[in-house]
Nucleic acid binder design. Sequence first.
DNA 1: GGTTAAGTGGACAAGGCTCTCCACTTAGCA
DNA 2: TGCTAAGTGGAGAGCCTTGTCCACTTAACC
Lengths: 241, 241
Amino acid sequence: MPAVPEGALGLRADARQNRDRIVEVARRLFADRGLDVPMATIARHAGVGVATLYRRFPTKEALVTEVFADQFEACVSVVDDALADPDPWRGFCTAIEKICGMHAADRGFSTAFVAAFPEAIEIERERDRAIQAFAELTRRAKAAGRLRADFSPDDLALLLMANCGVITGSAEEAEAASRRLVAYLLSALRAEQADPLPPPARLSLHDVLNSPASATRPVRRADSGPTAHQETTARQGTGDR
Amino acid sequence: MPAVPEGALGLRADARQNRDRIVEVARRLFADRGLDVPMATIARHAGVGVATLYRRFPTKEALVTEVFADQFEACVSVVDDALADPDPWRGFCTAIEKICGMHAADRGFSTAFVAAFPEAIEIERERDRAIQAFAELTRRAKAAGRLRADFSPDDLALLLMANCGVITGSAEEAEAASRRLVAYLLSALRAEQADPLPPPARLSLHDVLNSPASATRPVRRADSGPTAHQETTARQGTGDR
DNA sequence: GGTTAAGTGGACAAGGCTCTCCACTTAGCA
DNA sequence: TGCTAAGTGGAGAGCCTTGTCCACTTAACC
């Protein structure tokens, strides 16, 4: 993450200020209300017009990506820190707790993270590194005999999505819920657990991070058409879902 | 749940048929695509006009309530069945597995359940009974020494919301993810777990089931206004969030 | 101070949604 | 068969979104 975001490089001083304020305001609004705050609201809170907003960030997605880029980096470095811990199990637990806590504290981030914007190119390289780092952390925690052997690194996606699920209500409620859920989950992950698990979900971290589903571009399947009843064929071609 | 829904009582034969088809189609569409299928799509698939749809169900919420009323009842009877099981822990586990499985199999239901429509009056009485039944199940499973003592009946809300979080992608993916998550969670709930938990989240079942947040009426906080910068007071009165 | 390219804001286009209105059709009954 | 209340479909109102356009303003350099 460069100290000056590359998008703000050749900007005139006033434009630069406006851009900074937009990002700052967007971060706060996304955190408080989630990703579906309208662009006009962000613009108004930043004291600019919508045109200015769209001049800096051609789509809402671009704004979201920019806003959460460094939060994503923070997640990555949490995993790095965990790898540096001499006790791999402690590292593992702290990493999960920290990441889930970050999500719980930021409504927009949790959505953005799970939704994931494939266009976040500067993130892409980091992402693969993070996945490998977490896999290594997993390996070590298992080797230390603390993490159950049938845990799959892809289960991280499962945990994160579950964590997102409990993020509702006020920030404090969300954080309390997340903390308790994570405590449950971590105690399920200890090696002493004997009950066998059903097969890992086909929800790998790669899938989640490249999913077409997104809060700003919701998944919309093509209309498969009616399967019965007197639906006339003439009505079909409306393009309606 | 009456055999003939009270909404369909004095209806003319053709109207009755249309109503039934609407509910059937809506159930299928909600299950496949979630709650945000447009009303027009439902009408089209049912082979009726939107006006007909709105004549039977004055709001989308009313339709959703009707569609999921019996699924809700099914959840309640799952808890009843669990209470009838001589082994309370087995009953407890099966209940959770079944309910989570039902949610995973039905994208719309999971949303509707967590969102919860306070207006679903006929459900209201059932709801309190279900909550008490689950509390009783909890008590027995603890008494049998199988469920960890610090489990709170309100944690059911936590589990259900977490489960909702992993419902993405195809139906099979969702069910696989849910199964694995539930397996993790149940192993965390066994009495042998020693690690103390953080305090229960202030997410009681009552709260969740009466939450103002909803998929059809998303939570919208009042705009608190900007906290800094040169926002003019004149711009404030636009009613924008 | 004057020039000018960069920056700006507000109106508006395009398209989505829920829900309403009203002129027309039809089931049910004598 | 013919009457009538019940039922109907489609157009469109009203509101929300994201994103565009263009006449105006202003920072930055001479």
